[in-house]
Write a protein that binds this DNA or RNA. Structure first.
Length: 221
DNA sequence: GGCCAGGACACCA
DNA sequence: TGGTGTCATGGC
């Protein structure tokens, strides 16, 4: 059984439990990009405070950010932590995209390969931020590999070691899914990562033991 | 008071 | 390449 087919099965099982989750929690594509920067190594609760501050001052789009001052941005995003570097990253990314393309939508129209190269070259956009922007802001078929994904795959045994995880993180595309399914798959992985206990792969009282049972019988070997 | 949270980058060996 | 330090707030 291949790695991809394992993920297919996991998706089906998770879908039975969670259904459509309608992620990412943002109103616009620009907001996704801003949130993706703000959430770097930061709990979403703190990010929400920063986003709320930005919204109150109508600074929740790339154009407004690019026209704002560093001090102003820094003040508003303070609750999300790492505010100095995040303010710089938001300014660099917004300014470049707006000045060179006019909008995120116009950048998207250049195609996925172009966007991957372009965004990766921006300071402050690493692999996970890139994945999130491609999938949730640009509607491109990208499997998001973040801390939740690694943690979950390690727990269920789809990945077996930190070493394997590091290799896995470097795999650019592993799935031939459509965009809505990829969005929901990552959302479900986040949800189950938050809900489950820390046992490997699952403890007996785990709320997802039906998945555990199925997983042990059908997927593991 | 310590630990962790939806990372990325610079620096060093 | 791989390991480590740094950036910082807020919740538990």
């Amino acid at each position: 059984m291949t790695f991809d087919s394992n993920i297919l099965l996991i998706e089906r099982l998770l879908y039975d439990e969670f259904g459509d989750l309608n992620w990412w929690p943002a109103n616009t594509s620009d907001e996704v990009v801003i949130g993706a920067i703000l959430t770097q190594n930061t709990s979403w609760g703190n990010v929400e405070k920063a986003i709320s501050n930005l919204r109150e001052e109508n600074l929740l789009d790339l154009k407004s950010i690019s026209e704002s001052s560093r001090e102003n941005i820094l003040r508003l995003i303070r609750p999300s932590g790492f505010y100095n570097q995040k303010a710089d990253r938001l300014l660099v990314i917004s300014t470049k995209i707006i000045s060179e393309f006019g909008s995120l939508d116009k950048l998207s129209k250049r195609g996925m390969e172009f966007c991957i190269k372009y965004l990766s070259d921006l300071k402050g956009v690493g692999k996970e931020t890139l994945d999130s922007i491609l999938l949730y802001a640009m509607d491109m078929p990208r499997f998001v590999v973040d801390k939740y994904t690694i943690r979950y795959f390690l727990r269920i045994g789809l990945l077996n070691s930190e070493r394997e995880s590091r290799k896995f993180e470097k795999i650019p595309e592993i799935l031939d899914y459509n965009v809505p399914r990829l969005k929901n798959l990552h959302a479900m992985i986040v949800e189950i990562s938050k809900k489950n206990c820390k046992s490997k792969p699952f403890c007996e009282s785990c709320i997802m033991r039906n998945i555990c049972k199925y997983y042990k019988e059908r997927i593991l070997p």
